[in-house]
């Protein structure tokens, strides 16, 4: 810097621009890492969430075809845009009470490379963005199978389930 002006030196200007870019990129990366998008829903009285990246679609339950000789957590199958997919009842799977269906009942279709199935939920709330840091490790009160598929507990008591683990769980594969 000299006494004649602020941006006299080209070298100085270059350095400053470079630094600004670095700073902005760093911030953006942090932002992307920070937030997790969740599809929020209810099972009974409790709020749950599934990572949006693993969700293909949400869909109303129109027709449910029961299948004989399957574990109880398999509710049945349904026709989804010309494709037959199985329906997992999470309330049975997590050994929760109150198994009734209502007009609010919805299907959330989960999808990975190898697997695709629907879970039945009592009511769909919507999509929300949660800061990743705010998702805490877990709760000692959540016992049983739920603890296995638990990713954490978000703000306002939303139980975040590990969708990937559900999709890759071999126990869910029914082989007849």
């Amino acid at each position: 810097m000299n006494n004649n002006g602020i941006f006299d030196s080209e070298i100085d200007l270059e350095v400053l621009q470079k630094r600004a870019k670095e700073l902005s990129r760093l911030h953006q990366e942090e932002c992307d890492d920070d937030y997790v998008e969740l599809v929020e829903f209810t099972l009974g009285e409790e709020h749950y969430g599934l990572e949006l990246v693993h969700v293909r679609e949400v869909y109303p339950l129109h027709v449910l075809t029961f299948l004989p000789g399957v574990p109880k957590f398999i509710k049945g199958i349904t026709n989804f845009r010309g494709q037959i997919i199985s329906i997992l009842d999470l309330k049975v799977f997590f050994e929760l009470e109150d198994l009734n269906l209502s007009d609010q009942t919805r299907l959330i279709i989960l999808k990975s490379k190898n697997m695709e199935f629907a879970v039945i939920v009592d009511a769909l709330i919507g999509v929300c963005r949660v800061p990743g840091k705010q998702i805490s490790a877990g709760l000692p009160t959540l016992s049983g199978k739920r603890a296995e598929y638990l990713k954490g507990v978000g703000p306002e008591g939303v139980i975040v389930l590990d969708a990937l683990r559900l999709l890759e769980d071999p126990t869910l594969v029914v082989d007849i």
Partner: peptide, 17 residues
């Protein structure tokens, strides 16, 4: 309105994707 709600969720999902 129910259906449009569902539609909005799906739209969000698609948007996220």
């Amino acid at each position: 309105s129910d259906q449009s709600n569902l539609l909005s969720v799906n739209a969000s999902i698609e948007a996220a994707k």
